[in-house]
Nucleic acid binder design. Structure first.
Lengths: 196, 196
DNA sequence: TTGATTTCTTGATTTATATCAAGAGTCGTT
DNA sequence: AACGACTCTTGATATAAATCAAGAAATCAA
């Protein structure tokens, strides 16, 4: 993939997630993102630091997690096409709540908060568009909370599998287990049922 | 509480949740809310219907829940000072995902979607303000997901209790149990530990 | 106040999931 | 190819939480 194609991928995802923008406007947004590659295992963000960037995953995977006394909790894994940041830190300058680490060699586009904030001056509809984006994120999270109120570990597994098949042969399964709220052993046993 | 004091309470909560507004502007927002009382057990919203309103709880409690084949799941209980709606339905005109029912006689202010949508024309900063409000909601939900990934039922109980003491002697405890993702029996046993 | 209904508690039991421990597979590196 | 480091699986066991069932307590309505 050459840089032009990478750029096209970014623009496509901006269109998908921040609808209602003309292609000229999308171009102006994309202009402010910078391209970078990260080796497997590198951190994009450390907990308690300030999160000054929003990231876009072009290829690879980024894990969002936190370390507790006794265990490590993976909050989410973002693959290609995802925008990600620690929202509380990025928007309200609080210390970051999560670590972000690449699980494989990963290509990202990133944008600094100061450039991101300029969108609202460049584009009159920006606040409206961003608002809708966050609403969709909120609705998705509501579903995730619901899955913990209403579903068993096994139901969460199959539900998630249907939506994210590709993830299951790309990253260590223990991280999927954690983001679904179960141990690797439980995950493995459910998986065995699935395969038999 | 007379109507003037009720109105003042609404304005105060608007200020709390949608900061950055002058008092004249808050007044113009509050003007578009209407006051209504609901008897215990009345529905503000039925699942699968269209949610055309946002609600503000002045006094009382509203339960957000859904009925499954085998059980009922309470997603949240909103007490005084809460704004509530089915966001997906209110904003994107999808069928409502939740029921909303009062748990006691309840006073609310409500606003129709068409009036709510007019805020952005009345107030130049509205989109920005609303965006920040939703971001805070999103961050709160992230914490809630995390509580299911990292905490036991007992930890969720005590964590929630610290934040919401008043709820525990105002509404049936079974609903708190459900929103914390446990059965009433488990809830009761944890509660016993707390009291002894 | 009384009876009816709902809610909460408690005990016994079952089930789901976590923990612990060991071994097997996989992957990356040299 | 071989080593070491992860990662996954599997079994045995422990623990957390759900289920089932009954009764007690609280609440509501007449």
């Amino acid at each position: 993939m050459n840089l032009l194609e990478k750029r096209a991928t970014l623009e496509y995802s901006i269109k998908q997630n921040f609808g209602l923008l003309g292609s000229e406007e999308i171009g102006r947004i994309a202009d402010l993102f910078k391209y970078k590659t990260h080796k497997k295992g590198e951190f994009l963000l450390n907990k308690d630091k300030s999160c000054q960037h929003m990231y876009f995953v072009l290829s690879g995977y980024v894990r969002i997690f936190v370390e507790l006394e006794t265990k490590e909790v993976t909050q989410w894994v973002s693959g290609k096409g995802y925008f990600l940041t620690d929202l509380a830190s990025f928007q309200f300058n609080t210390p970051a709540r999560w670590n972000m680490q690449t699980l494989v060699d990963t290509e990202i586009f990133y944008i600094h908060k100061s450039d991101y904030d300029s969108f609202k001056f460049i584009l009159s509809q920006w606040n409206e568009i961003e608002k809708q984006f966050i609403m969709h994120c909120f609705i998705t999270l509501e579903e995730r909370v619901f899955s913990h109120l209403a579903m068993t570990a096994e139901e969460r597994y199959f539900n998630f599998f249907e939506q994210n098949k590709e993830l299951f042969n790309q990253i260590p399964l223990q991280y999927i287990a954690s983001m679904l709220g179960m141990t690797p052993e439980t995950f493995s046993r459910i998986r065995k049922k699935q395969l038999c």
